[in-house]
Design a protein around this nucleic acid. Structure first.
Lengths: 118, 118
DNA sequence: AATGATTATTCCTATAAAGGAATAAACGAA
DNA sequence: TTCGTTTATTCCTTTATAGGAATAATCATT
């Protein structure tokens, strides 16, 4: 067992500041545009321009979203000339999305089952 | 392998509507007050009044947060007399929080290691 | 029916965040 | 240095959400 790290683990209580940080991370994922960008980045690193093309989001928006995710330590950033490559730096991202996705699928199946009965 | 369920699984593409739903779920977790309520509910079902006491959030706020989480199929609701008991209905909730918590702990440990070097 | 207790909802205000246009900044090439 | 490309930032408007006070709704008790 590791020693300190009192601020934000889920066994036992989490401090209000810990909860705020937690919520902050979830908020990063709480926007469809950012999830779309993550979906593109799942296939590998991409430049801002490529992501603008692929996502249909405006350049400013993409740049802001990427900065936000980079600040949250979700993306890595690599500069090459005038281009900037972003990549997912924490695979937790996909575990998170898979968890919620499977939940949504479960719900949908349940709905379908109900429709079937009716 | 299950058959249909095209709308929102993470292998392959997720539709824009799927992404919107996904984001919506994350937004539920993107607020410290709601996480605090979930933390209380981790120990078992509680009434609205108990949660008001425990969380320090106002009655209206608690009620609204609970409704939101119930609508998102995260909480179950049981009425007994004038009291209403809420409980976490999907253990995914805790997996989600644990995932993000462990990420935060990792980051904090990394920060600590850097401080140690300096 | 009237009262008290509990929860839900409405209304308002304040805050935060998204989105777009324009501009700035960083960099390479000529 | 100047120009073109790419990305970041600023400014503005709009929308969404939290939070509180007040009110409504629900239910048991008398």
């Amino acid at each position: 067992m590791k020693s300190g790290s009192k601020a934000s683990t889920t066994e036992g209580r989490v401090t209000p500041e810990g909860l705020e940080k937690l919520a902050g991370v979830f908020r990063v994922f709480g926007e469809a545009g950012r999830l779309a960008l993550l979906q593109e980045l799942k296939e590998g690193e991409k430049t801002v321009g490529e992501l603008v093309e692929l996502s249909g989001i405006g350049q400013a928006g993409v740049s802001k979203h990427l900065k936000m995710m980079h600040d949250a330590d979700i993306l890595s950033r690599r500069k090459e000339g005038t281009k900037v490559y972003y990549a997912v730096s924490d695979p937790m991202v996909f575990e998170l999305c898979d968890l919620v996705c499977s939940k949504l699928v479960r719900e949908q199946e349940q709905l379908r089952a109900i429709e079937y009965v009716i």
